[in-house]
Design a protein around this nucleic acid. Structure first.
Length: 531
DNA sequence: CTGGGGACGGGGCCC
DNA sequence: GGGGCCCCGTCCCCA
């Protein structure tokens, strides 16, 4: 028992020693970490003080600039931009350039503001704000460093500066223009900025807070993501300005000019993201791409000359695209070309038509897709993949049929003097260009007239009007024999054969007569194995 | 039940 | 824009 007691006592003492040692180790670690935290806190506080001083200097500088910029010309420019933002002004290059900077690499590329405004002195008043900011921002950092407050966190957050790049060089890189553009946008986009008194430091504070947050968060992955989104197309690209034009108009028209700051708030990335909405950019690019790739449409007829009754916005858009592309075709080529004499151009079109059939996958997809988009009914009639080819087969089959049934039979025969305007697909002649355009829709599949009751679309307005009787139930044509009513006169005429017993279609084999041609054809197919 | 034919409604297209 | 023709799909009747 005594030995056991001694053993337990020794174990207890050993455990106590170990516990004490562990506690001491923990305390030591806590003390070390606490010291590190204190050091970092103190460094952060120092950094904050430096930044505050930097802010004060910026405010002073900007206040001085505002004094210089408070001349009426400056107010005029800013107010003019306000008016344009409200939609009062037309979309000029000035507006576009003023908005466009969001997606440009360098602010210097966006400085055409001065050129657009056309008034060097007044616009300088705007632009001078930015150099003042830029100069004030960098010296602020320099001054901060010169104070000997080496900030490891700052170096960690800003690797570009830590790498030893001069601040000026950093300003020339991609992030700089974003900040510059944003600051300009905030100042100019805010209506009260120019109208408020010069002592209104709140606006300045907002602006500088934006600048401050932007520079502090330069390494933020989200900001970098914005930089990626804001990565503009190559200089000279025509897409982005177009996109910004329309988008800017929508934005300002709906919300008002103070919304940029409201949207941006403390997070300038929001304001930036609003202007550089990536979701909208592909739209503009897509439209442009469609325009550029619709080569095949250049050979189809123009749609816009007759106008479309389509009330659906998306269809109208598609039509506009088609119209623009097709506008490349000289509308008077039939009249100008010596088709009647030599058929040289007609042969070219025929050759092209052949290329269409053989290279369908290359030449026609875009336009066919456009037609499919334009005509959901026809798109639903067959597999989407084969829709184009099916459609073209139908088109050219009907074309052959039409040519066979055409009195003139094309340009090579018939009334050449009356039908000088030829279809570029089937060479059929028409008396006027409008008729050619309408006819060529048979080949292109463009159906501009859509029913408001259903999804049916029609090539001709008369067809739509006739179709609408299906929905209205209107039957204006009544049979005088049986009082039966019909929606169409030709149907009434067909019905009258019931009463008259007229059977104009006789079988050449058995002499059986039929009231309809189709009945005769079916009869001959089944009974006489013809066709 | 099935096939032939009539009748009808609707779309395409041209004049 | 309307008339007219063609074609097709569908329904119905009847042998």
């Amino acid at each position: 028992m005594d030995n056991g007691m001694v053993f337990h006592t020794q174990i207890a003492s050993i455990m106590e020693v170990l516990a004490n040692a562990a506690v001491a180790e923990i305390c030591k670690l806590v003390d070390d970490d606490y010291a590190v935290f204190r050091l970092e806190i103190s460094q952060s506080q120092k950094e904050n003080r430096g930044l505050r001083r930097k802010l004060q200097q910026l405010e002073l500088k900007v206040a001085r600039e505002r004094v210089l910029a408070s001349r009426p010309s400056s107010v005029k420019i800013l107010d003019r931009y306000r008016g344009m933002a409200r939609g009062e002004g037309h979309l000029t290059g000035g507006h576009r350039s003023f908005v466009k900077p969001a997606g440009h690499n360098t602010w210097r590329d966006d400085q055409p503001i001065t050129v657009d405004e056309g008034s060097g002195t007044s616009t300088q008043n705007i632009i001078m704000i930015e150099p003042a900011d830029a100069e004030a921002a960098d010296p602020g950092v320099k001054q901060e460093r010169s104070e000997g407050e080496e900030d490891p966190r700052h170096s960690r957050d800003n690797p570009t500066r830590a790498a030893g790049d001069p601040p000026v060089a950093t300003e020339d890189t991609a992030p700089a223009p974003l900040r510059s553009q944003r600051s300009i946008t905030e100042v100019s986009g805010m209506p009260n900025t120019a109208l408020k008194s010069e002592t209104d430091t709140e606006t300045l504070t907002v602006t500088h807070r934006l600048l401050h947050t932007e520079s502090d968060h330069r390494s933020d992955p989200e900001r970098q993501g914005l930089g990626r989104l804001g990565c503009p197309p190559a200089p000279g690209s025509e897409y982005l300005p177009v996109f910004h034009q329309s988008h800017r108009m929508v934005h300002t028209r709906g919300d008002g000019y103070g919304d940029e700051l409201n949207i941006g708030g403390d997070d300038p990335s929001c304001s930036y993201a609003t202007e550089m909405d990536p979701g909208n950019m592909p739209l503009g690019l897509e439209i442009q791409t469609d325009l550029s790739r619709g080569d095949w449409n250049r050979y189809s007829s123009s749609v816009h000359s007759e106008g479309c009754l389509d009330k659906k916005g998306e269809v109208i858009v598609v039509d506009e695209v088609t119209v623009k592309v097709e506008g490349d075709v000289p509308p008077t080529w039939n009249a100008e070309s010596p088709l009647v004499e030599g058929h040289s151009q007609g042969r070219d079109f025929l050759d092209y038509r052949g290329s269409l059939e053989t290279n369908l996958n290359i030449a026609t997809p875009s336009s066919l897709h456009a037609f499919r988009d334009l005509d959901p009914v026809s798109a639903s009639m067959g597999p989407s993949d084969s829709h184009g080819s099916v459609r073209f087969d139908q088109v050219f089959n009907s074309n052959d049929r039409a040519k066979a049934l055409a009195p003139g039979g094309g340009a090579t025969s018939g009334n050449v003097k009356e039908k000088r305007f030829l279809c570029m697909f089937c060479n059929k002649g028409f008396s006027c260009p409008q008729k050619v355009e309408i006819h060529q829709r048979v080949h292109t599949g463009v159906k501009c007239f859509s029913c408001t009751q259903c999804q049916m679309r029609f090539v001709q307005a008369g067809d739509l009007k006739r179709h609408q009787r299906v929905h209205t139930g209107e039957k204006p044509y009544s049979c005088p024999q049986c009082e039966k009513r019909f929606s169409r006169q030709d149907h009434l005429k067909m019905h009258m054969k019931v009463h008259t017993g007229e059977r104009p279609f006789a079988c050449t084999h058995c002499g059986k007569r039929f009231s309809e041609r189709r009945c005769l054809r079916i009869h001959q197919q089944k009974n006489h194995s013809t066709l």
